[in-house]
Structures are given as structure tokens and as C-alpha cells.
Amino acid sequence: MNHKGRRINEEWGYTLTETCMVLFLITTILLISSPQFNGVAQTNDLDYFFEQLEKDLYEAQMTAISKGMLVSVAFFPTTNEYIVRHGTTVFVRRSLPKGLRVTKGSLDMDNIRYLTSGNLHSTGTIHFYYSGKKYTLVFQFVRGRFYFDK
């Protein structure tokens, strides 16, 4: 003992049991929160898809107006993608997120056409299904407008 009543070789630190308990608690917390982060990532993918689809539809409309040509948008559920094209020339080809299913509503999935005026050839709906939720893409006749009904 030294003059202050302490041992000279006193060791400071944690035992193996204490370290294992802390690691166990951290692992448990991460395992519990992991599925929640996965759900957030899937929701972000779906939100990004609808934002990108909206931009592609506006771009198709603007291309029809600016270049004076008929521009079509078509969804293909078998290949899980959609394209924007003029005749056989494809401008945009995008994949749908995993788990998203597209079905015909009152509009055929390959019958979305923007005229040279920017108006739609016909109006109607297309349905999207993801994790038991239904999203509807509604095309209005007025000036080629559309909106998503979630």
C-alpha cells in the first residue's frame, strides 16, 4: 500500500462479462430497429419512383409540345417497367420498384398519348399496388393534367 491507502497495482477497466452484456444490449437494439429502417428505405424507393414518373410524364408532355410529335407512355407489367417513346424511338426506359404491381384501370397501360398540343389522347386511370396499398394515377382531359391518388 502506498501512503494514501490504495494499492499500487489497482487495475481499471471492465470485465469480460460486463463487455459482453453491453455488446448484447447494442446488438438487441440494432436487431429491433433494423426492420424499421428497411421499411423506411422501401417507402423512400416508392416515393422516388412516383416522383420520377411524374417528371417523366411532364417531360413527355413538353416533348410533344416542343417537337410537335405524338409521344406515348406505356407500362409493361410482364417486364416490370415503363417507357416513353415516339414511334419506335424510346426516350426513357425505367424499371418499377421491386414489389410494385401495375394494372389497367379505365385506361390501357399502353394507351397514354400526348398530342402535339400537350393534351392527352384519352383520359382514365392506371392502378399501382404495393404492400396491400392501392395508388391510382388519374389522367384528366384538361390540358394533359394528371395526379396520383394515394
Rank of each mutant, 00 (worst) to 15 (best):
residue 51 E to R: 10
residue 77 P to R: 09
residue 76 F to A: 03
residue 44 N to I: 13
residue 62 M to F: 08
residue 43 T to I: 00
residue 75 F to Y: 01
residue 47 D to M: 06
residue 53 L to I: 01
residue 81 E to M: 13
residue 73 V to P: 07
residue 65 I to V: 14
residue 78 T to Y: 01
residue 45 D to P: 00
residue 89 T to A: 11
residue 41 A to I: 12
residue 92 V to I: 15
residue 81 E to S: 15
residue 46 L to Q: 06
residue 48 Y to T: 02
residue 46 L to H: 02
residue 43 T to V: 04
residue 66 S to H: 11
residue 58 Y to F: 15
residue 71 V to C: 02
residue 70 L to T: 08
residue 79 T to A: 13
residue 45 D to I: 01
residue 90 V to R: 10
residue 53 L to H: 04
residue 61 Q to Y: 05
residue 89 T to N: 07
residue 78 T to V: 13
residue 82 Y to G: 06
residue 54 E to R: 12
residue 71 V to E: 00
residue 84 V to S: 12
residue 88 T to M: 12
residue 43 T to C: 04
residue 91 F to D: 08
residue 46 L to W: 00
residue 78 T to F: 10
residue 59 E to T: 06
residue 91 F to Y: 15
residue 67 K to E: 07
residue 41 A to C: 03
residue 83 I to M: 09
residue 69 M to D: 01
residue 72 S to V: 03
residue 81 E to K: 15
residue 53 L to E: 02
residue 54 E to M: 03
residue 65 I to H: 01
residue 89 T to W: 05
residue 69 M to G: 01
residue 66 S to E: 11
residue 42 Q to M: 09
residue 90 V to N: 06
residue 44 N to L: 15
residue 84 V to K: 14
residue 88 T to R: 12
residue 52 Q to P: 00
residue 41 A to S: 05
residue 59 E to Y: 10
residue 80 N to W: 02
residue 67 K to H: 05
residue 42 Q to G: 02
residue 38 N to H: 14
residue 52 Q to Y: 08
residue 52 Q to F: 00
residue 79 T to L: 08
residue 64 A to F: 01
residue 37 F to S: 07
residue 68 G to E: 06
residue 41 A to V: 08
residue 46 L to P: 00
residue 87 G to E: 10
residue 76 F to S: 08
residue 85 R to K: 15
residue 80 N to P: 00
residue 45 D to G: 05
residue 72 S to G: 07
residue 37 F to M: 14
residue 91 F to G: 07
residue 60 A to L: 02
residue 49 F to C: 05
residue 44 N to G: 04
residue 80 N to C: 02
residue 78 T to K: 13
residue 77 P to M: 01
residue 42 Q to I: 07
residue 77 P to G: 11
residue 44 N to W: 14
residue 88 T to Y: 09
residue 66 S to L: 12
residue 74 A to R: 09
residue 76 F to K: 03
residue 90 V to K: 11
residue 49 F to H: 09
residue 52 Q to H: 04
residue 51 E to I: 04
residue 37 F to H: 08
residue 42 Q to P: 02
residue 38 N to G: 04
residue 56 D to R: 09
residue 40 V to L: 15
residue 74 A to T: 05
residue 69 M to T: 06
